[in-house]
Every structure is written in C-alpha cells, then in structure tokens.
Design a protein around this nucleic acid. Structure first.
Ligand SMILES: [Mn+2]
Ligand SMILES: [Mn+2]
Ligand SMILES: [Zn+2]
Ligand SMILES: [Zn+2]
Lengths: 140, 140
DNA sequence: ATAGATGATGAGAATCACTATCATTAATAG
DNA sequence: CTATTAATGATAGTGATTCTCATCATCTAT
C-alpha cells in the first residue's frame, strides 16, 4: 500500500507527470480494495472521499496504474471487467461459473511448465493468463 | 468441415430451429477459415458469397456456433476479439506481443497439472484459458 | 508568494462492439 | 398452396471506454 503509492509517485516523476489530488485519491482507494473491483464500483468508493471525481479520471488513473504495473485488468467472462491491485506477486485464477466465486492460486509447477512450452516454440515470455473455469466445492 | 455442418444441423433440429440459407452460408465460410478471424473480416468473406447478409446475422450465427461448441471466441488483448472454428480438439495459445504471431499448442502435462490444481481447491473444471504472451523467435 | 505555462480534470460528446427491435422474408407443417 | 412463425437485415439502442475541450490545479521560475 505505502510501497504502491511510492512506486506510483516514482513513475509519475519519471514520466514528468504532475502529482494531482484526484489521481492520488483514486489510487489510494484502489490499493485499499480487497478483491477484483469494477470501474463503476471503484468510482462509487472514490466518490465517498471526493464526490466531484469523474469517471474518465478513474479510467485514466487505472490505465496509468496498469502502465506502471500496479493494476491488472481481469476479464473473467462474467460480462464486466474488473481490476485488482498488483504488486509483482503473480497469481492465476479459478472461477466458478455458477456462483462467481474466484480463487487465486500460484503454482510453481505451472510457471515452470509454461517456460518449458515457451522454450519449445522459441518464445521469450513476458506474461501469461491462466483461468480455470468450473464449479466450486459448494456448487458441485 | 462436413462434420461441423452436420453437427450444426443436428443442433438446429434438436433446438427446433430452421435451416436458413444465410446461416448456412455464414457457417460454411467460417468453417473454411484458417486461423482466428474477426467478425468484420468474416462478414467481408461472407458477403463475397451473399452480399445481402447483415452484421447482426453474423453475430447471431457465431453465438449459435459457440452454443453448440463449434466456435470459440478468443480475446488476445490485441484490441479486437476473434473467433475460430472449434471441433473438440482443445488447444492453447502463444501470442507474440510484438508482431502478433499466434502459435497454437497442446500440452498434456498442462492439462494434468490443471486438474491437479483444481482438485486441490475442490473445483470441477469445465473449461480453461491459457495464454502465454511474449516475443516469438523472430522478434527476440 | 506570484504569475505564467501547461498538465490534469470533469462533463459530456463520440466511438466501438454488440444486442434489441421490428417490419419483411422465407422455412416448415399440414 | 397456405398459414404460421422463425430468421433476416436495417437500424436504433446500449454499455463500456475514449476523446474533446473549457476550466482548474500544479509546477517552475522569478
Ligand atoms: Mn486476482
Ligand atoms: Mn486457436
Ligand atoms: Zn460456486
Ligand atoms: Zn513476433
């Protein structure tokens, strides 16, 4: 959270951007959020702090945060995309197509296997997306 | 190709739908396409056969094809979604973020590992999405 | 601290992909 | 062949995101 803000500010300096209050308010609220949040939901949260903030600025800030690796866009085929704070701790997702539950996981074996596959085809990996869809314990 | 059309016709009968020419023309062109095609590109192709076909019908047909497992929607973060014919032979993708090349692959190890992960969290899998982003042989 | 330059903002228009509507056309059952 | 009604194509509508632009706020250099 504190580190996230610092990283953002470093990026802002690096790019010669300005330190605006709206942007910082949005970023702070976003970093505090727990799981995957929609843009509308984030706007609602932010407006509890500052009612004047506009939707466009939320989008602009999320795009900036993505650029510097502090936000990750997620599209789980639920009809609405979400964002989550991202601090270089990669993880993948299990998604219940019945109740919508989302479980985050990390598998070292999976990461290794990916590298192996990439190598086979001469690829150098920069990122990946792994989404497992099915029914959770409750729903099956 | 022939099997695909037959499967589609069986599905149409099953659902009590009608056998329309537009739909069949669209499906035929789609099944003939090689790689991942955009909706606009598919419409262009289809109109070479039948200039009167509308965009909505292409969407309707693609949705129907998805329903019966004959088409798969793909969103590789390139800005435009694509579709590909799909005949129960699952595969995943390597995507070059530089030149856009897409390599399809299938890994038995990967499928097994997914089941293992799912089991760990009590999930029963129905589907999954694995996209590896990076730079291809040429671009790196 | 002040003033000037310009980046950032918020409101709303514009765009893009996709879906809904609806009058017309065409497939099917009798 | 006719009646029924699903399917079509044109287009309006929708939702998400970006763009435009006048105004505001931040930063830099006095
Ligand atoms: Mn997550
Ligand atoms: Mn493919
Ligand atoms: Zn569930
Ligand atoms: Zn490449």
């Amino acid at each position: 959270m504190k580190e996230n803000l610092e990283k953002l500010n470093r990026y802002i300096d690096l790019k010669g951007l300005r330190h605006s209050t709206s942007r910082e308010q949005i970023a702070k609220v976003f970093f505090k959020t727990q799981d995957h949040i929609t843009v509308e939901a984030l706007l609602d949260e932010v407006r509890k702090i500052n009612a004047k903030i506009g939707l466009a600025t939320v989008y602009r800030t999320l795009n900036l945060l993505q650029e510097c690796g502090l936000a990750m866009k997620r599209d789980f085929d639920t009809g609405t995309v979400t964002f989550e704070p991202y601090s270089d701790a990669h993880h993948d997702h299990l998604i219940c197509t019945n109740c919508g539950e989302i479980i985050e996981f990390f598998s070292d074996d999976l990461e290794k296997l990916q590298d192996k596959i990439a190598k086979k085809y001469g690829f150098v990996l920069t990122d990946h997306k792994m989404e497992l869809y099915g029914h959770c314990k409750n729903c099956s």
